[in-house]
Amino acid sequence: MKVVIATILILITFFAVALYMEQYVNQSAEILTSELEKLEQAIEKEEWKEVRQHMENTAQGWGETKKVWLTFLEHNEIDKIDIVFARLQSYVGSEENVEALSSTAELKFLLQHIVEKQGFRLTNVL
């Protein structure tokens, strides 16, 4: 009976944590995406000082989010975002707006892809 009760407690804890983590992924992806949009707007206007500021905010946000995401998401998905981020930082550093915009679009896509892949949907289950 102790094992049954322990099992039920494990299940309840698991469902609670799973729901919370799904919410967390959605929220943190949304925050990062909105930072990237601000970055995009600044790049389009070619206001590079503002771009660097937004870049710093986004990098900081990504650094904090990554620590949590690494505990339950596939590492290769995180690595892809890291690679594109590094590329974006380089383009921002050299003030190449076309490449920078392409990298932000790529980052937004990767974030959206992670959110879709993690969502509790029939297509993901199958």
Binding site: V3, V4, T7, I10, L11, F14, L70, T71, F72, L73, E74, H75, N76
Partner: peptide
């Protein structure tokens, strides 16, 4: 495979334990 988070191994095992016990 260190690319797979440890929790991705722990959760299925605990799920099977729960299923078996229930």
């Amino acid at each position: 495979n260190t690319g797979v988070p440890l929790i991705n191994g722990v959760i299925p095992i605990l799920t099977l334990l729960s299923a078996q016990v229930i």
